[in-house]
Every structure is written in structure tokens, then in C-alpha cells.
Computed example of a mutant assay.
Amino acid sequence: MNILICDDEPLGRERLSRLVVEAGHHVVAQAPNGLDALAKVSEFHPDVLLLDVRMPEMDGIQCAEALTGLQNPPAVIFVTASDQHAIEAFQKQAIGYLLKPVNRDDLSAALNRASRLNAAQVNQLRAANHGDSPTRQHITARTHRGMELIPLDSIYYFLADQKYVTVRHAGGEVLIDETLKELEAEFGDRFIRVHRNALLAIPFLEGIEMVATGQYQVRFRGIDERLAVSRRHLPQLKDKMHML
């Protein structure tokens, strides 16, 4: 992919440039602030913009907001020394948030996610940013890589365990500190409760099978994992299966 790097520190830009090249991508330009980055986006049409937050003239958040007005904006990955702007960053359609000093593996993983982001997902993020969508189209999770963006349509299930919820998605697992009750209230049209500690993504629902007398589990499309189904939620799940 073609990458534009925006950071007000020359040494920071050069280090990122080396990591990008080592990851097998091409640096088309560098910019010292958001204003210059906007001009170079129009000139070079990069696939991805690696964007710092705190910069003179125009900071990264302002730059990302300005990019949402473009017809085909680059994917934005924030690279910054602070995690305090993560939520605001994702509201400006960022697909990644890396904390400095960035290591090679984390950057490579973020760029790989960017390469898989299709046009439909970009449009969903832009719609959410402009208030055209009633719910989020992604889940944010803080991991060892920083803040990660998990597309909602890639999530198989949410599984509660004490104070955290595991998000099982196409790329693996992450932990979030939201509750199942909150998630069910927000995404009840796309997920169904199968147990007091589990919400299942309806599009990935493949079937129900009996494992013992009175005990059932659910099968997923795409993965071999199973989730237990409680007796309380079994009738609702069967009704949903008949509707699919």
C-alpha cells in the first residue's frame, strides 16, 4: 500500500518510514502537520495515513475530521504518545490507534487490518460519524497494541466472564469492559442472548444441537467453536432459527 506519514517530529517520521518499508509498503510522502497532510492526501492519494495527534497548525483529530468530507479518504491509523484521544480518534473513522514507540509487529498488524478494510466498512464508519446510523459499526478494545477497532460484522459472539467481556471475532479475541446488558440494548437486532453470559451474532448462527438430555449448544458458521444454550433462552433461539 501507499502510506503517508504525518508527524511534527522529523525523527519520528523517519523511524515510521523505515518500519513501513520493512513491512513491505511504500511511503509516498511525509507531512509535519495536519494541514500539510491534507494537501498531500489530495496530491498523492495514499491508501493509509499514519497520523500523530498533537501537532502545530492543525492537529491529528482536526485532520481526520476534515478527511471524512472526502469521497475516498485514506484509512487513518493514529500513532501517538498518549491514549487519551483514542475514543475521539475512532469517532473520526480511524481504524487503528498505536502508542509510541511503535514496534514493527504492531505496525505491520495495523497495516494488514487497513488492507482488509473494504469500501462498505469505510462507508459504515463515515455514516456513523455523521449520525446517519443509530448504532456503532465497530467495537473498540484496548490491547497490547493500543486501541483496536473491531468491525461489528466480524464478531461471532460476546461472552461475559466476571468483570470483562470477551469479543470473539474473525481476527481472534479481545477483552472489553462493557456489559452484556449494554451490548444487548444497543445491538439487540444483530445479536441474540443464548445464555445469561453470552450474546450470539445472528448472521453466524448455523444450528442447534443436543449434547445431553435437556442440554443444547449452538454451532457457528465459519468457526468450530460451540456455546452452551440455557433452557431459558432455548425457545427464543429456536424461533429465530425458524425465521432464518
Rank of each mutant, 00 (worst) to 15 (best):
M1Y: 06
N2R: 14
D7W: 02
P10F: 06
R13S: 07
R13H: 05
E14F: 09
E14R: 14
R15C: 03
L19F: 08
V21L: 09
A23G: 06
G24M: 08
G24R: 01
H25G: 01
H26Y: 01
V27H: 00
V28C: 14
P32G: 01
N33E: 08
N33P: 04
L35C: 00
L35E: 11
H45K: 13
H45N: 13
P46R: 08
L49F: 05
L51N: 05
D59H: 13
P73G: 12
P73V: 11
A75M: 07
I77D: 00
I77V: 15
A81L: 03
H85Q: 13
H85P: 13
I87D: 04
I87L: 14
E88I: 09
Q91M: 07
Q91Y: 02
A94V: 03
I95Y: 05
L98H: 10
N103Q: 15
N103F: 11
D105Q: 12
D106I: 11
D106T: 11
L107I: 04
S108G: 10
S108T: 15
A110E: 10
R113W: 10
R116I: 02
R116E: 05
N118S: 06
A120Q: 08
P134F: 09
P134T: 11
T135A: 09
R136M: 10
I139H: 10
I139W: 06
A141R: 06
R145Y: 09
G146T: 13
M147G: 15
I150G: 11
P151D: 12
D153T: 11
S154R: 11
L159C: 04
L159F: 11
Q162T: 15
Y164L: 13
Y164T: 13
V165K: 07
T166V: 13
E173P: 04
E173H: 07
D177Y: 13
E178A: 13
T179M: 10
L180G: 02
L183T: 08
F187D: 09
G188K: 14
D189V: 03
H195V: 02
L200K: 01
T213H: 09
Q215L: 09
E225M: 09
V229P: 07
V229E: 05
S230F: 03
R231E: 13
R231N: 13
K238Q: 13
H242M: 12
M243I: 11
